[in-house]
Amino acid sequence: MSEALGLEDVLREHPFTTGMRPEHLRELAGCAREVLLAAGTFPIREGDAADTFYALRDGAVAIEVHAPSGPLVVQTLHAGDVLGWSWLFPPYRSAFDARVVEPARALAFDAPCLRGKAERDHELGYALMLRMARVFTSRLAATRLQLLDLYGPRA
């Protein structure tokens, strides 16, 4: 049962850490805490300091962009996804809003803690960046397909 799992076990079960060495998992767990994201809340707001990185265990979070017609949802994230990457690069400011659509359990990582550890231990940093790069490429591929108008030419 997940309630009985320690933070490290929860982290090990998350697809983001697949194949990660135990000592690296331990280091990551040292920056993490378990959180419950309530429906309707905004764990990330455009322009705010990007100081947290989330690994979703369930629920749903919508990435939103403000358009003149109102907020548009451009992607939803679900169990097994990670949320937030502006924490990786200066100026560490979030580029989008993230709104919780269905209550979600998540691991919330303190971004300065992660960056510090990655800086001190490049092996850990590499393992982390490799996984982030995989997230970027798969989101980029999905975005390209979205732009292709995948469901057929407009009539």
Partner: peptide
């Protein structure tokens, strides 16, 4: 269900259909 883009009234997923496969 998933769509390419939606406003907040939509309760399904947003993203390409391949992103639903893991679920």
């Amino acid at each position: 269900t998933t769509v390419d883009v939606a406003d907040r009234a939509w309760t399904g997923a947003v993203g390409v259909v391949t992103r639903l496969i893991p679920r």
